[in-house]
Design a protein around this nucleic acid. Sequence first.
DNA 1: TAACGAAGTTAGATTAATCTAACAAATTTT
DNA 2: AAAATTTGTTAGATTAATCTAACTTCGTTA
Lengths: 218, 218
Amino acid sequence: MISQAEENYLKALFHLTNEMQGKIEAGTNELAEILDVKPATANNMLKKLKEKEWVSYEKYGKITLTDKGKSLAVETVRKHRLWETFLYEKLNFTWDEVHEVAEQLEHIKSDKLVQQLERFLDFPETDPHGDPIPNAKGEIKFVNRKTLAEVEVGKTCKLISVKDNSSSFLQYVVKLGLGLSSKIKIISRQDFDGSMEIEVNKVRSSISKKVAQNLFVV
Amino acid sequence: MISQAEENYLKALFHLTNEMQGKIEAGTNELAEILDVKPATANNMLKKLKEKEWVSYEKYGKITLTDKGKSLAVETVRKHRLWETFLYEKLNFTWDEVHEVAEQLEHIKSDKLVQQLERFLDFPETDPHGDPIPNAKGEIKFVNRKTLAEVEVGKTCKLISVKDNSSSFLQYVVKLGLGLSSKIKIISRQDFDGSMEIEVNKVRSSISKKVAQNLFVV
DNA sequence: TAACGAAGTTAGATTAATCTAACAAATTTT
DNA sequence: AAAATTTGTTAGATTAATCTAACTTCGTTA
């Protein structure tokens, strides 16, 4: 049996390693940080996860998920994203509201539930943030994404997902008039700080480089 | 903040008191029994619930829910029954599969979720077992039910709910050819033990008095 | 390369929910 | 009403997940 806390640790490790481009191992402190616990707590849990053979790591070494650990993590990510899709498409939740509730729903234990939920949603490929939903075998369809910061001046692109899923960031994005599939035209860019002028639905706004780097477009 | 365990205790107390006809107070042992914990554990939790003013009880006395406790309990019952309805109607769960998963789902914390789920299901009045679903104000529409054991020989009645929601009992009921809305004709009854011969879809079976007392009909 | 700061670990305490074993009160039976 | 049975309580231990404070190791930089 896997506990909710254990699922959260595995999921966090998955995000830190397999899902981050160019990273394959994680450290105790960064793990603790994204889970909002103290390093001592993460270290303590890591021992249990190692005991269960869901992570491999040695004292003072780096952490990686084992195959079993990764597959458990992917299953949790799959549930999270299916629930987000359900909330967004069927229950009128907004973009920025889905994450918090999905964090709870992802821990419900029932294979039939997940399988039927997926069928009910008609086998969606991405969640409301544009992130890919793993299939029942744990396979994840790779989505080729670049950030808004990389788009050339004058071009128009489509918003497909965001890197930062925090409620505050999503609310800020909504305030810019942006949503999934929004068309964004790049009007100009400042060389000295990378900030840019964009146009969405004929409305112009200025956004910082940091923000642009958190918006995935295609 | 209320914990899952606390919600379970309040819900159990609600079932034992307000929802049982002719009972308004409960004892430590029976509470422990339906929660499948030891009396010592229930006693320990009772102290916390009293502290939070969700139950009123004195040492060696009987337990009753306060108004606040009852309203928390009803909210949990509401969520449980809405989720059961969702699983049954939208996700192809069978009668006997819904309970276990709803036990988990009922603890998800989100007012919007419950409100939207209810709308999505088109404001159902009863769950798949025929039990009434409390509305958003906590009001419960009373359903006048008698048990199969009370029906006269020769009469035909309709199954609307079951008292025992355990998976094993529900599976037994299904094996008798019974489901929600099944028409049941009483063929005969044995005086000495109350067992009865019934006919469902032209198939006759014999059931014990105990079983008949767990089937609500109208 | 020595030392400093960052990263990681350990020991011990805390909290919630549970258990067992022993005890106390209340109720029922004889 | 005394004894027996049932019901309820207490004390103390356990487990999982967390914390703080002190300590150790690693890696970088002066």
